[in-house]
Amino acid sequence: MTKISASKLDNTLDPAVSKHYLSFLQRKVDKARLSLKGECFSNEEIESEFSARRAQAAKSAGQDS
């Protein structure tokens, strides 16, 4: 698979599309870097939080009947 350099990407795409894509890509990289630093939540933390929310929603739904 051939890699495309940023300069070739800029030359091949419409400038507005290229700018939008590069901005999108930078946000993804920034989020990944935060994740590596431990500034995001682990899968276990997320599952625990939403498990509690599901239980609360089920309890509320049972009370509404």
Rank of each mutant, 00 (worst) to 15 (best):
K31T: 10
R27P: 02
C40P: 00
L13V: 05
L22A: 07
L9M: 12
F24S: 05
E39Q: 12
A58K: 12
I46R: 00
R54G: 05
M1S: 12
K59P: 03
C40L: 15
L34E: 04
Q63W: 01
S23A: 13
A6L: 14
S7K: 10
T2Q: 11
R33H: 09
Q26K: 15
K31M: 06
D14I: 01
E47Q: 08
N43V: 01
L13C: 04
F41D: 02
S65T: 11
A16Q: 08
A6E: 14
I4W: 05
F50K: 05
F41K: 10
S48H: 01
D30R: 10
E47N: 03
L13H: 00
S7T: 11
K31W: 15
S60K: 03
E39R: 02
K37R: 09
I4R: 09
D30H: 04
R33A: 14
R33M: 09
S60A: 12
Q63G: 06
E45D: 14
E47F: 12
F24I: 10
S65F: 04
D64Y: 07
E47V: 11
M1K: 07
A6T: 08
Q26Y: 05
S51C: 13
C40G: 03
S35R: 03
K37L: 11
K19G: 03
E39V: 13
A32M: 10
R53C: 12
S7C: 11
E45L: 00
T2E: 15
G38W: 09
A32G: 03
E49K: 11
L36H: 13
A52V: 13
K37W: 02
S18Y: 05
M1N: 04
A61C: 02
T12N: 06
R33T: 07
A55I: 09
V17L: 04
D64L: 14
L25H: 15
F24G: 08
D30T: 15
